[in-house]
Design a protein around this nucleic acid. Sequence first.
RNA 1: CGAUCAAACCC
Length: 245
Amino acid sequence: AALYTSLIDALCKAKLGKEGFRVFESMQQHGSTPDLYTYTTLLVGLGKSGQWDLVRTVVADVKRAGFTLNVVTYNSLIDSLGKAGQDEAARRLFAEMEQSGVSPDVVTYNSLIAGIGKVGSLEEALELLETMKTRGISPTVVTYTSLIDLHIKAGNIKVVWKLLEEMNLRGLKPNAVTYRALIDGFCKAGELELAWDFYLNMLDMDYPPHLFTYKSLITACHKEGRADKMQELFENIKQKSYGRK
RNA sequence: CGAUCAAACCC
């Protein structure tokens, strides 16, 4: 079953959810029984490609096969629903999960926060952060990056500072993804100076800047007519590419 | 040992 799971996983990641489903059907014809890993992998693929009818069918199959959904399966479904903007369905599933006695973990909350924030319920997203903390589930850098990204895009810079401070207090360091969210967010908000500070910060931390990070910065520099900074950026980029082996 | 979370190109 592990072999089939890997195959289905690869197909789904290649955006071939349909193919994944076909392999899933054929594995059963060949006498191999899917386990919960197989089902979860398949559900992720189907969710990503928006095939909710099949998702429902497969979930019913899982239950019929006598499996109890575990935390990873629930997390996967909640995440897919959130990404599809189906925040109500995600909340319902979360409730169902708790009723079934499956304890949410940090990934559950991170998925919920991202999904609910996506539809604009920033307050609720922040409340979820509080809830998870009171329940003894420690937020991670992913939790904070997700919230920072949501708030910076909404123009709530004050909240962004608060989140960064809170991260600091908890001993969590921004990682490369956090920096990218900050830089891109500040660029789009027209806060070039702030974006620039974080950019320098990121270089100090030895995080390799991404091409897209440069692109954000260049666009912002251009909009604000900061030819000087653009020049500096180009120098940086040149140095980096020469320094590479 | 094989499954789930945040940013970024296009949207």
